[in-house]
């Protein structure tokens, strides 16, 4: 995929007026999230990673540690504030979903989910999203609900909590005390991402290098 905001890195604003102390603290902590399994078992952790690779595919040298972020949220014990009747709390629901995905993978391909090829994983995830999985290990919990309201949701939230993802979509990022001045059509403050216009990457790069 071509880069729409070349040279833009939201982190260059970290020490400028767009970030305040509490934001710096929060993002620093997030970027220092411990690696590796803490909540999940090693096998479960790999399964989560194999799902995340499909939900938010990354081809960068230093990928966003989506799985670590999912773990951190589960360890914090903070829920979303609602769950469907019959669905257990997040941690337990995650484990059930991982076990059920393994069971489905074994039934269909004879190996655990994390060892499947990308397209094979996609196939199972699509059927999960559509509620088209019926193995008994789901325990009566609707797979579609688990997909949309838990598994894929947590992964998507994790991915878009990382500054690299913010830079990728050209979002302005943290903004306090400084907010924005130019808010109309096609208006950009000098501290916002510049997108490539008319194929002129160099112009966008030049502007994005000046973002502070």
């Amino acid at each position: 995929m071509s880069d729409r905001y070349p040279g833009y890195d939201v982190m260059t604003k970290r020490n400028g007026p767009s970030w305040n102390d509490v934001t710096r603290r929060v993002i620093d902590n997030r970027l220092a999230t411990p690696k590796g399994p803490r909540f999940f078992s090693a096998a479960e952790f790999e399964t989560v990673r194999s799902i995340a690779d499909r939900i938010v595919p990354q081809r960068r040298h230093d990928p966003i540690p989506v799985t670590d972020f999912v773990e951190a949220r589960l360890l914090s014990g903070q829920g979303d504030g609602f769950r469907q009747a019959g669905v257990p709390q997040a941690g337990e629901a995650w484990r059930k979903a991982l076990a059920a995905l393994d069971a489905e993978a074994q039934a269909a391909h004879g190996m655990p989910f994390r060892q499947l090829s990308g397209p094979e994983r996609d196939g199972i995830l699509h059927r999960m999203q559509n509620g088209d999985l019926h193995h008994s290990s789901w325990g009566g919990i609707p797979p579609a609900t688990l997909f949309t309201q838990l598994v894929a949701r947590d992964i998507v939230f994790a991915y878009y909590s990382h500054p690299t993802a913010w830079s990728e979509i050209g979002w302005g990022g943290p903004a306090s005390p400084r907010g924005y001045v130019r808010t109309g059509y096609d208006r950009r403050d000098p501290w916002e991402a510049a997108e490539v216009k008319d194929g002129d990457d160099a112009a966008a790069i030049r502007k994005n290098r000046r973002v502070r």
């Binding site: 509490v22 929060v26 993002i27 903070q78 504030g81 609602f82 009747a85 909590s161 943290p174």
Partner: peptide
């Protein structure tokens, strides 16, 4: 001093105690 410019962090403002919906 308490509010960060961050979606994940600011979920601390929400009522996230356990509730069932059906």
């Amino acid at each position: 001093e308490d509010f960060a410019s961050d979606e994940a962090e600011q979920s601390k403002l929400f009522w996230t105690d356990d509730r069932l919906v059906d």
